[in-house]
């Protein structure tokens, strides 16, 4: 299930991101590259960030940028941007190195997907392994095994 959620272009490094909104934009652009969202989705995610603050920085160094299902979403999907230089979001979990992006077509088709994702991320040692692993193939295998 996670293997389908992460499209072929969905896991990438980024060398030129310098701020939090830039990191969100680049992560959401990965969803767009795999035709999971249209350009409209980014505005939704940035609006959420502006309204509620960096609440989707959910663990030390790890964010999951997302907005509500609907506007701009073509297909449920996930993406991961790994930042060479971590950015500051304003969260207690700063600095952020891994920026996941997530989109859902409706409010229930992704529940199992996120349950699998939570299980992978919560498994002993996996979070630190992901935070410290520069090889994107190894990262993909860890996430979709």
């Amino acid at each position: 299930m996670l293997a389908q959620a992460f499209g072929p272009n969905s896991i990438a490094h980024h060398l030129e991101v310098t701020d939090w909104e830039g990191a969100i934009s680049s992560a959401v652009a990965l969803l767009e590259a795999d035709l999971r969202v249209t350009y409209e989705y980014l505005a939704e995610v940035l609006a959420m960030n502006q309204k509620l603050g960096p609440y989707f920085v959910v663990a030390p160094g790890i964010a999951i940028a997302h907005a509500a299902p609907g506007v701009g979403v073509l297909e449920t999907g996930m993406a991961l941007l790994r930042l060479e230089e971590p950015v500051v979001s304003g969260s207690n979990n700063d600095p952020v190195r891994l920026v996941f992006a997530f989109c859902a077509v409706d409010s229930d088709s992704h529940i199992e997907l996120l349950a699998s994702f939570a299980q992978v991320m919560s498994a002993e040692g996996n979070m630190n392994r992901l935070l410290n692993e520069p090889d994107l193939t190894i990262i993909r295998n860890l996430l979709t095994a």
């Binding site: 509620l52 609440y55 989707f56 999951i64 907005a67 409010s107 349950a115 299980q119 991320m121």
Partner: peptide, 13 residues
């Protein structure tokens, strides 16, 4: 969570 579909679902799980 803000939207009730992402962070909250992970937290619930």
């Amino acid at each position: 969570c803000g939207a009730g579909i992402g962070t909250s679902v992970l937290l619930k799980s």
